[in-house]
Design a protein around this nucleic acid. Structure first.
Lengths: 183, 183
DNA sequence: ACCTGAACACCGTTCAAGT
DNA sequence: ACCTGAACACCGTTCAAGT
């Protein structure tokens, strides 16, 4: 006699992500997730390959959203404008998902599946290539992502502690990069 | 009758850092540290404020080394040359301490004590100010650190997976930044 | 076919008792 | 003054038993 399913992988991932953003990574326990979806912890193993697998799925769901958002903004008429918009969208995603965001870059070998990684990478490469020229496409894309990732990582970690205007530093850096790539 | 001390805070931190770099953060257990210094786990609480306190001390020891290294390289005659050297030293530290490095930026409010943070920040600001002008000192310093931190973070996480020459991307980014700041 | 209680190994941490 | 065994609360995970 089959027992009816009381939850689903999608619900588990969504609940996990909600807990992650609300209470932090260390509060993301199998117990807390099970409570949130109305099940006992052992049942989660029918949906997810353990806690680590769930974290990977959460990272993936974030990466999918980021890739969609980057994709949308990158095909306007002016490459410099597009690159600025791309950076802004990237940063906005990090601000809206401060606990999920670090999961996209932190894990060795990436919790993020190749499909979403490639889609984001493509969006950045297209605009970087238009601005810096095809021969510098990859290097320019890596420069932009490194700067943006480093900036929001430090921002989220509270590493900008010397006062001053963080917004001004963002604009200064973006101007510097756009200018240098357009060269 | 006093019992003789069998270890010290310095030894505990050094052992912890060795375990961290050899086996990773999740292997940095109180048990493993206690084994390494020849003591039982409860005794560690005489040296260190729990695991979290130890991680903070490890981050601090790394931050001290980084600050020293940055300081040494930043007072040559040419600002552009100094900035390049600073970036190279920064990256070399991350490569030599791939597990310790993320601790310097990751933790909210910083595991790193203000003294070492400020000393590193000063070194970067001095050279950034000489290159970009005093009015842009802070913004320029933040741009350089964001890029360098983002680059090595992605490098260490294995996030540069699209082939191409990572060294070329590093040189390209450094050229772009030096040019833009001096610009 | 999924859910559950019970159990296991392993954490970090506390503390009274030893020397 | 420091070290230790014992104990506690809490993890993630496995699995046989239920329906």
């Amino acid at each position: 006699m089959p027992a009816p399913a009381r939850t689903s992988t999608e619900e588990v991932v969504a609940a996990g992500r909600r807990i992650l953003e609300r209470d932090g990574l260390e509060a993301l326990t199998m117990q807390a997730i099970a409570d949130a979806v109305g099940v006992r912890p052992p049942s989660l193993y029918k949906r997810v390959e353990g806690r680590e697998g769930l974290v990977r799925l959460i990272a993936d769901s974030g990466a999918a959203e980021l890739a969609e958002a980057l994709d949308e903004v990158v095909d306007g008429p002016d490459a410099a404008t597009d690159l600025r918009a791309l950076a802004v969208v990237f940063r906005a995603f990090a601000h809206r998902n401060p606990a999920t965001y670090p999961l996209l870059f932190a894990p060795r070998l990436g919790g993020v599946s190749a499909a979403w990684r490639d889609r984001s990478a493509d969006a950045v490469r297209r605009v970087a290539g238009r601005l810096a020229g095809p021969e510098h496409e990859l290097a320019a894309a890596r420069t932009v992502v490194a700067w943006a990732n480093g900036f929001v990582t430090m921002e989220l970690a509270g590493a900008f502690q010397l006062g001053g205007d963080v917004e001004e530093a963002w604009d200064y850096g973006l101007d510097a990069l756009v200018g240098a790539l357009a060269g």
